[in-house]
Amino acid sequence: MLSIKNLHVSIEGKEIIKGLNLEVHPGEVHAIMGPNGTGKSTLAAVIAGREGIYEVTEGEIFYKGKDISEMAIEDRAREGIFLGFQYPVEIPGVSITNFMRTAINEIRQYKGLEQISAANFLKDMEEAKKLVGIQSKLTNRSVNEGFSGGEKKKNEIFQMAMLKPDLAILDETDSGLDIDALKVVANGVNALKTDQNATIVITHYQRLLDYIIPDFVHVLYNGRIVKSGGKELALELESKGYDWLKAEA
């Protein structure tokens, strides 16, 4: 599904990701952990195709067997890459409903499908709302405008449920959530899981991983994956912190 080979990324001439390798197969859940500022969000943005400040200086990203380095952000999204944002953006005056309908119809158009019917769209919305436990009214409000931290994160998972991506990258979806909200979000992610899709969960607490059980845990440190293992690695990190990894990095 996703294969990253020797990826190097710089921001304003400073190397942030320094030779990263990652293999993700359908049906897998990967967790990427690591202290603040190690490049987790940078990695997510680069997989999604963001340019601007991010400069890929070396390496390749293959998605579904294709090198996607030249593929536009929106086409990666239409091919099934979804990014749950660490800091979801406000879009004043644009209702979630309108936003989602626009997105879904553009994706459908890309795939040569006709526009979604109003009835099906509403049905999908109801299901997705139920899944993440968001109130009906919320989808009439402007995207993320005046949302609480928890509402913003739930809204990301709601959109994931609507778009049914093949590869979901969830960037610190757990931060700012109380334990109840965390469970709701985790249940949503688990419910969307199939053996065809894959999830990358980015977090720096192991707490989320009590609810979303990863097949693999990777530790990102100083721009490299310094250690990979099973879910027990998360527990180890929880008890020991990150400092012991300095030696390995």
Binding site: A72, E74, A77, F85, P88, I91, E106, L163
Partner: peptide
């Protein structure tokens, strides 16, 4: 970026934001 990442084209993203 947020709009594009949801599969929305640049043209429609600007349209959405401006209309909002």
């Amino acid at each position: 970026f947020y709009c594009l990442q949801r599969g929305i084209s640049e043209e429609n993203a600007i349209g959405l934001i401006v209309n909002g």
